[in-house]
């Protein structure tokens, strides 16, 4: 379980997270929606210990993420993360991209790492691209590679930060289908997204972020189709 408890986070004088609390259970998919600059990405970065927090607490399977004694590199192995920019490693083939971390982080043998990488690449529909260099692929394919690369570490959780926002519209579908597949397989996910249809159909719950706080959180369909908070209503009427 991921448990975010009253987290405050500032960049200099700018307080970006103003007391955020959120529990995500194993097997649950939570979508995070909200306006630009409301702190959605920052929350994911704090969960993954990429950014430190000022106060509050974040627990991942009861491990305090930001405690001094926590091995953050080890912790990140549990938390797969995919970003808006796919950040393929351009000097490696698709297969090498996905096999690198299992090999050097988990110290698997080369054969083992390649086997796992292959499996995850097939999983996201890139089984025929193993020896291609990622820059020769479309954005949608590279984003699926990023997902496979994260999955090859066998994470318990996936943190997804607007993974379709940088894609051409015709490529969004293939990536969302991949995420839908993961959700059906029971992967625990926190998805920051602007795709309201995806949030409504795929997630269990939706959290609406407004200026550093969760202004509304609830069952996905209810939040998207029948929001209670006037702020959520306003936001949703704008993005529709």
């Amino acid at each position: 379980m991921i448990s975010v408890q009253n987290v405050h986070k500032s960049f200099g004088d700018l307080e970006v997270l103003k007391g955020v609390s959120l529990d995500v259970n194993r097997g649950e998919v939570v979508s995070v929606i909200g306006g630009s600059g409301s702190g959605k990405s920052t929350l994911l970065y704090c969960i993954n210990a990429i950014e430190p927090i000022n106060s509050g607490k974040i627990l991942v399977d009861d491990v305090d993420v930001h405690a001094k004694e926590t091995n953050k590199d080890k912790l990140r192995q549990k938390l797969g993360m995919v970003f808006q920019q796919w950040n393929s490693f351009p000097h490696m083939t698709v297969l090498e991209n996905a096999a690198l971390a299992p090999r050097i982080v988990k110290k698997m043998s080369k054969e083992e790492a390649i086997e796992i990488a292959k499996k995850e690449l097939e999983h996201v529909g890139l089984g025929d691209k193993l020896d291609v260099y990622p820059t020769k692929m479309s954005g949608g394919q590279q984003q699926r590679l990023a997902i496979a690369r994260a999955l090859a570490m066998k994470p318990d959780y996936m943190l997804l930060d607007e993974v379709t926002s940088a894609l051409d519209p015709e490529l969004v579908g293939e990536v969302l289908d991949t995420l839908r597949l993961l959700a059906e397989e029971g992967m625990t996910m926190i998805c920051v997204t602007h795709e309201m249809g995806f949030a409504r159909d795929v997630s269990d719950r939706v959290a609406y972020f407004h200026q550093g706080v969760i202004a509304e959180i609830g069952e996905a369909r209810q939040v998207i189709t029948d929001p209670q908070n006037p702020l959520t209503q306003k936001f949703l009427s704008k993005v529709r």
Partner: peptide, 16 residues
């Protein structure tokens, strides 16, 4: 920096 963050998010250490 985002390329490096992507690598770190896979569990790689700074030196890796």
């Amino acid at each position: 920096p985002s390329m490096q963050i992507a690598a770190r998010s896979l569990g790689m250490t700074k030196w890796q």
